[in-house]
């Protein structure tokens, strides 16, 4: 009997930690999303004032044009950043897989953007785009792309492009790292066989490399998609969701509704909707990842 219980006893501390830091906040957030806290957060303190209103908060979110605007921006952000990160990451991985002088150094340098905290990255890019002193602002002006120094972050489209650029700069390295690791595990003799079979470099890339990298590509894409979908800090630092909701991604909207406007139930409901999206990605990811490992 004791033998049977013992393993579970050992699990208790870990379970308690998970309960406190993960499970409890999630359950609390779900709880909040089902009660009416409109205009008065203090209702939470008194159980007598809790009024369960079912899915009303969810319906409010789905009826809100701000949510739909935000969802569209988030999807654009996700598709564009993940797309570019994949193409650039694959290209970098292929280059770094070749032998050349100081390859180790270049591999190390490549990881720097990814190793930087997002906050640092965001501040860095904010300065690049600064209306008065920004490197990129100046470059664009001097090359004649813009009419003098312009405030890139204050126009809807250019601000979205700006935050996407910053995200791509940082996370391409992650995709490159995963693909490079996978590339290095590919057997060399298959490529020699393909050479003898007459495949040209592009044919080798599309008929051999990419199909063999497929599992790694999927993992990288899904991880990046989940993260891009939840992007928050880069928006928070660089644009604050502006201008006029032009860069208001879903995470930032949830934060703004709850923490800035005190609209906790709306924010909680929005957070749950986002969780459903990310959970779908997570399930796909886990399915793929564990399929080959049994």
């Amino acid at each position: 009997m004791i033998k049977k219980i013992r393993p579970y006893v050992y699990l208790v501390p870990a379970f308690l930690v998970i309960l406190c830091v993960t499970l409890a906040p999630i359950l609390y957030s779900i709880f909040i999303s089902f009660i009416d806290l409109t205009k008065n957060v203090h209702k939470l303190d008194n159980p007598n004032l809790w009024s369960f209103i079912g899915f009303t908060n969810y319906i409010n979110v789905l009826k809100d044009s701000v949510f739909w605007n935000s969802l569209v921006k988030t999807i654009i952000f996700t598709v564009v950043t993940v797309g570019f990160e994949f193409i650039l990451g694959l290209a970098i991985a292929l280059i770094l897989n070749e032998k050349f002088r100081a390859r180790g150094l270049v591999r190390g340098l490549m990881l720097i953007p990814w190793a930087l905290p997002t906050i640092v990255n965001a501040v860095l890019w904010k300065w690049f785009y600064d209306a008065d002193h920004g490197t990129i602002t100046g470059l664009l002006a001097h090359l004649g792309f813009t009419d003098g120094y312009s405030n890139i972050l204050s126009h809807t489209t250019s601000a979205l492009i700006a935050i996407m650029t910053a995200d791509i700069w940082k996370n391409t390295a992650f995709v490159a790292l995963i693909l490079l690791a996978a590339l290095q595990s590919l057997p060399k003799d298959i490529y020699e066989a393909a050479k003898v079979d007459g495949a040209k470099p592009f044919q080798r890339l599309f008929s051999i490399t990419i199909p063999l990298l497929a599992p790694a590509i999927l993992v990288a894409l899904i991880i990046r998609t989940m993260e891009a979908f939840k992007a928050f800090d880069i928006v928070y630092i660089m644009t604050g969701g502006g201008p006029g909701g032009g860069t208001q991604l879903l995470s930032f909207l949830a934060y703004q509704q709850s923490m800035v406007f005190g609209n906790f139930s709306y924010g909680a409901a929005l957070a749950q909707i986002m969780s459903i999206f990310t959970m779908i990605f997570a399930v796909i990811y886990i399915r793929i990842f564990y399929k080959d490992r049994g």
């Binding site: 057997p187 003799d189 298959i190 020699e192 066989a193 393909a194 008929s207 051999i208």
Partner: peptide, 10 residues
């Protein structure tokens, strides 16, 4: 060419 580890396309 026939390779030692077959080098088939998996």
């Amino acid at each position: 060419m026939v390779f030692q580890n077959y080098a088939l396309y998996p």
